[in-house]
Computed example of a mutant assay.
Amino acid sequence: MASSARIQEVAAAAEVGISTVSKVLNGYTDISEKTRKRVLNAVEELSYSPNRMARSFRTGKTQTVSVILPRIGTDFYDRLITSIDDTLADHDYDAALFPLLSERRLQRYKSADALPYHSDGVVMASLNPECLFSDASLPVNLPLVLVDSCHADYDSITLDNAGGAKKATTHLLKKSGATYAILIEGYNKPPFLSGVFLERLKGFRQAREEAELPPDNHYEKISPFTLAGAREVTRQIIRQNGLPVNIFASCDLFARAVLDEVKSQHLIIGKDVRVVGFDDQKWAQNEGLSTIRQPVETMGNLATELLFRRMKEPEASIKHSELIPELIIRESS
């Protein structure tokens, strides 16, 4: 049952003004820790729950943040969404998810009246406004933070994808046998990709260059973003190259396909075929997959806190943060 306590009662119990209670509940930092604890204790004792509809009417805030992303249902986006939502909860906010999915939705999202813009701010994951919108910006004046993508005009949290791919490839180039990369089909085609796979290709090429190997796109294989497609590419690599062979899979989905195909051919992972993925999904450790670990939860948390900073300080300087991925070496390499 909802509490019938009013904010005036909380203020009286905590011996503060109503505005102080409101500031504490809305996460303002200009309140002493002693006062904050007194207010929170009063809230708990009285089982006070703020009327969000009334607060929204009063403040003009929706208490929601829109999250626009290419798709849902992958390990990366599930973890990212959970992290964003957990951080929003700390500020008494909710996330509204808007997977792009298709050109039809993109056309709808080009309108300032589109549903994603009926919120207090936007987190955009793995998408670049420069590729999505004709003027390279949101069609409305809302705070925006980019994750897994970068634009000069917006705050962003990115990963050093080139550096991660370079680490993986350098590790494989030390092994006997040729080293290939499996890349996602359309990795360099906007608007639905942020450019991370292009960065991973760049890292693959940098590692080859530092190993004094000549440029040769023969070692760069393209696959649809499916297990079946990546398995077929793996078969081609094994058939054309022979054994042993090394494969940098530009995502763990492709690494999963390599593992499955190698097992189906009764070959030995880590000896006949060595593979390093990119993501460090939940299953990777159990399968002994060497991979590049992305700090996904940190990305989501930092992006959300950066959005709240932008909401409170609209004129603050643009901030870009690049996180460093980690090479996790396991049995597969």
Rank of each mutant, 00 (worst) to 15 (best):
A2E: 11
A2Y: 10
S4H: 05
Q8H: 10
E9G: 05
A14C: 00
G17S: 13
S19E: 06
V21Y: 13
V21K: 11
K23M: 15
V24L: 13
L25N: 04
G27N: 06
E33G: 07
V39T: 14
L40S: 01
L40W: 01
A42Y: 09
Y48F: 15
N51V: 05
R55I: 06
Q63G: 03
V67R: 03
V67D: 07
L69G: 03
R71K: 05
I72T: 11
F76G: 02
L80N: 05
S83A: 15
S83G: 11
D86S: 06
T87L: 00
D90Q: 03
H91W: 07
D92G: 01
A95G: 08
L100W: 01
E103V: 00
S111F: 06
A114M: 05
P116R: 06
H118P: 01
H118C: 03
G121D: 12
V123M: 04
V123F: 02
V123W: 03
M124D: 13
A125P: 01
N128S: 09
E130T: 06
C131Q: 06
S134W: 01
S134E: 12
D135Q: 05
A136Q: 02
S137A: 03
L138V: 01
N141P: 02
L142G: 02
L144I: 00
S149V: 05
C150K: 11
H151E: 04
D155K: 13
D155G: 10
T158N: 15
D160N: 15
G163M: 13
K167S: 10
A168Q: 08
A168G: 08
A168Y: 10
A168H: 11
T169Y: 08
L172G: 03
K174Y: 12
A178K: 10
A178V: 02
T179Y: 08
Y180V: 01
I184S: 08
Y187N: 08
K189D: 14
P190M: 10
P190N: 13
F192R: 11
S194L: 13
S194P: 14
G195L: 15
R200C: 08
K202C: 13
F204R: 06
R205I: 01
A211K: 15
E212S: 14
E212V: 12
D216H: 15
I222E: 12
S223T: 15
G229S: 04
R231P: 02
I237T: 15
N241F: 00
P244E: 09
P244I: 14
V245H: 03
F248Q: 08
S250W: 02
S250Q: 07
F254K: 12
A257G: 10
V258M: 13
Q265Y: 10
I269L: 15
G270L: 14
G270A: 13
K271Y: 13
V273L: 07
D279L: 08
D280S: 00
Q281T: 10
K282L: 08
T291C: 00
Q294L: 11
Q294H: 05
G300W: 10
N301M: 14
E305F: 03
R310T: 09
K312H: 11
K312C: 07
K312F: 09
E313R: 07
E315N: 14
E315W: 05
S317Q: 08
H320F: 11
S321P: 00
E322P: 00
E322K: 12
P325L: 13
E326S: 03
I328H: 00
I329W: 01
E331L: 05
S333A: 12
S333P: 14
